[in-house]
Amino acid sequence: MTSAVRTLRRSVPVALGLATLIVAIALLELLIRIGWVNRFIVPLPSQILASFERVVVEEGIPERFLLTLREAFSAFVLLTVFGVGIGVLLHRVRILRLATETWVAAFASAPTVLMYPLFLVIFGRSANTIIMMGFVAGLAPVILKTVEGLAGTRRVLINVGKSFKLTPWQLYWKILFPAALPSIFVGIKLGMIFALINIVGVEFLINFGGLGQLINELAERYDLAGTYAAICFVILVSVLFFILTERLERWLRPAN
């Protein structure tokens, strides 16, 4: 296969994805214009597009975007360090795992965002509250998927390690951990989805800081086009984290 054909094959899905998005937006525009969708509830995509410049210049999008990005990154670091760390601990200490696994699973579905008043009391009306809310919301899936990945390592790979007389530390670092990486990254991606929802949600609720606060303000002003434009930036944060985790995973485990 020539490199041109290979490039073409790789770019077709990307082009198809973009084309689908453009067609969906155009369809929405059409439905609103012919009155099938109420334009007082859903603004015209063309209006949203037109409002981007205004929102960026007048509403301080770059600063807010960076603040939300920083909060999300802090939550990501905390999630990775503590989520994977606790997962490793639960995998190693069987009694601890048996005692807590059900609770951690239950915690994963708990609406932690409702705990924000408690976090406000502890951390004040600051970015710390938002980061901690994001961290708490995303912790359970990272722990659960880390434990699942480590426990699911094929017995024969562990036996290979034992046959080469690996120390317990080497067995973890050289075999269990790389074998569990795909599952751990599923956990981190899931955790980041919950974390980002909570970060923007708490910014919205406590009217502080980044994109969530801006969405709150624009919605209060009934600036629908601006609100949706700001939401697009939240999606951009999400996309950036998805790319970051994908890159990180590919760097740590190139065979994927």
Binding site: R154, V156, L157, N159, V160, K162, S163, F164, K165, K174, I175, P178, A179, L181, R253, P254, A255, N256
Partner: peptide, 28 residues
């Protein structure tokens, strides 16, 4: 217990999927 004098080849597929052929062989 496991001993360096005895090298084991297992029935099940036991290569490390995250390592290249060369890195698999260089593992020990």
């Amino acid at each position: 217990g496991p001993h360096r004098s005895i090298g084991m080849v297992f029935q099940e597929e036991s290569t490390f999927p995250w390592r290249t052929v060369l890195d698999n062989v260089a593992f020990p």
